[in-house]
Design a protein around this nucleic acid. Structure first.
Lengths: 362, 362
DNA sequence: CTGAAAGCGCTTACAG
DNA sequence: CTGAAAGCGCTTACAG
């Protein structure tokens, strides 16, 4: 690998002169600069090495995205893809690379409290991080804060003083539930993806609901319960089922259990993926949507429109745009005392399609 | 930022001792090591900094993916997403991060040949690269080769001695065309996404076909032409239209022009996105698929199944798996003389659904 | 098992 | 405008 030293030697100048040729053209005469670059070209010198540069300057030129679970799951999740598209739009404006960190790769502080390898491989590889939808108090998030890596949270966790992009999850969830109640439904089932990252599947009792570490789902479920209570329904009337994951397969399993056990007339799902899985499950049981079952989702991903799914629209791509923009702003502006954290709470919107209908009076 | 030096000072040991505590436990007594790690913990030392480490060791712990065009386009492209899923599956096994480099961000060698900034920001940020579907002789690919960054090509360009993952594009394309010919179609239109990255749109003449820099599309088009010629049709009988991009919008525009100008009974598309766009265009013109128009795609993305699209299935995810596996192997095995480049050519398969049918005899 | 030295490639004060 | 020095944080021979 040819380095600045080699170029300097061949050009008959000092090594810093080569650095100036690339980074501070004003410090050199035009002739000197051209000579150096010509020699570099001839030697096949590829330009300043990022590692050397960033060790000195502290800047890398990449931003990172934390990914819970496996990377391959993330790329299978439409709402994550939408977020990535949004981040990508800003990333390219700002000329940075985007690095994805699957968290299940990272070695974290040992649980037993003994001194262990607390390494977070993020450090040094990126200038800042976007943290989307992590559980409360995840050790990785603690590590990021402790290392003072600049970061922006999308959706969760809500951290005091952190830059944040999200929506009013509880309010949107109430709107979801209200829609079904207004259509006359009272026997309503709920499908959530997961309340804790422990892959638990099945019916959710009050205790598990309250102990949830996933803020987004907990907030939505809280919204469902609040809205239902105003209509005279208790938590136990709702029949909440947890899929234990984010994909269609586990969603269908959860919905099948729910339908078999409680025969609801409507299902509220905490994501479109879960809602579409519920529709598949219903169809497999020879039920027609919306004639035999109303289903409402959350997100308004592209497939929702195709499938005629009634849902809550949230600006998935825009959230990525804002998160990336916030992060780039932070990185370009040295922090000073009294800085307010940047916050953006987007509006959501009920989109009524054909998967929900008025309950026939018996 | 607390560094090894600080930890060493506080622990009363040399700085290399701290390094050993993290990386070569055998070099220290257990007591010494525990003491150092305890002090590190107490100081909030986050572990060895990647930049410092990689400057010495030459290893980063991340692999990169080159992305033509904008990052946000890539995340909108189902076949790119599938590739990413495959790469993700291996990445997590090997405990590496995945960095995406949008090429339109990268500064490349000036076209005029004058000495310029030839920087490829990739260097130093990743240990190796996956290069998917780039034009022949792209300056970025040349830069990668010149800098001796380990890389694996997916689909294109075909480079002598390069590690490679792909399919038999020409053969698969012939199969596509053969399917329509066997159904009796003779007035056949072709929709390709793009033959050159110059955003040209419209009908493609023989000269443009031959000057294409996009190997994959060129190969497929060559397959169409070869197969058609065996059935007595010339290039000019095929009415090839170029969308000038990869998304549905430009695909619909191209298909609309094709349908209006030549009223074909069948369309061969070089991707499922283009095929589905063609179906939309046909429907907008009050044509029924397959009654008035047969359409065949390429890729077999998820939407193809839902839409009943006849297509060529290629293992999109598996290509990512192999590319990542190849790269990880290369990085873990020092290269030696006489190494054969790794190659994997996957089989493809015609999947007949409901978007194609036998041409009614007039 | 332990410590002091050298150096990875670079940038940035600093002195001429 | 130009050059020599220092140092970013780390790892790896090398000597004890």
């Amino acid at each position: 690998m040819v380095s600045m030293k080699d170029v300097a030697l061949a050009a008959g100048v000092s090594q810093p002169a080569v650095s100036y040729a690339y980074n501070k053209p004003g410090k050199l005469s035009a002739a000197q600069r051209e000579h150096i670059l010509a020699v570099a070209e001839q030697l096949g010198y590829p330009g300043p090495n990022i590692m050397g540069r960033s060790l000195r300057s502290g800047k890398v030129g990449a931003i990172g995205l934390m990914v819970m679970d496996k990377l391959s799951y993330a790329f299978a999740d439409p709402s994550m893809i939408a977020l990535l598209r949004g981040i990508g739009e800003i990333g390219e404006l700002s000329n940075v690379a985007l690095t994805l960190f699957p968290l299940n790769n990272q070695r974290i502080r040992k649980e037993d409290g003994k001194p262990g390898n607390t390494s977070l491989a993020v450090r040094g590889l990126v200038d800042g991080l976007i943290i989307p939808t992590m559980p409360d108090d995840h050790p990785m998030v603690r590590a990021v804060i402790q290392q003072r890596i600049p970061y922006v949270v999308v959706d969760s966790p809500m951290i005091d003083g952190a830059h944040y992009v999200g929506i009013d999850d509880r309010g949107a969830a109430r709107q979801q539930m209200r829609h079904l109640l207004e259509l006359g439904h009272r026997r309503i089932g709920v499908i959530v993806d997961r309340l804790n990252p422990d892959n638990h599947r099945g019916e959710v009792d009050f205790k598990r609901f309250k102990s949830s570490t996933e803020m987004i789902v907990r907030e939505r479920l809280t919204g469902y319960v609040e809205e239902a209570e105003e209509a005279g329904l208790a938590f136990s009337d709702l029949h909440v089922f947890e899929a234990g994951g984010f994909d269609s397969t586990v969603g269908q399993a959860a919905a099948t259990s729910l339908l078999n056990q409680y025969a609801p007339t409507a299902i509220v799902a905490c994501s479109d993926v879960m809602a579409l899985a519920s529709i598949s499950a219903a169809q497999a049981l020879q039920m027609k949507v919306p004639d035999d079952l109303s289903v409402i989702g959350f997100d308004d991903i592209a497939e929702a429109g195709n499938a005629g799914l009634t849902t809550i629209r949230q600006p998935l791509v825009e959230k990525g745009v804002y998160a990336a923009r916030f992060l780039v702003d932070i990185l370009n502006t040295p922090p000073s005392e009294g800085d307010e954290p940047k916050r953006k709470i987007f509006q959501t919107q009920l989109v009524v399609r054909t998967s929900t209908r008025k309950l026939d009076q018996p």
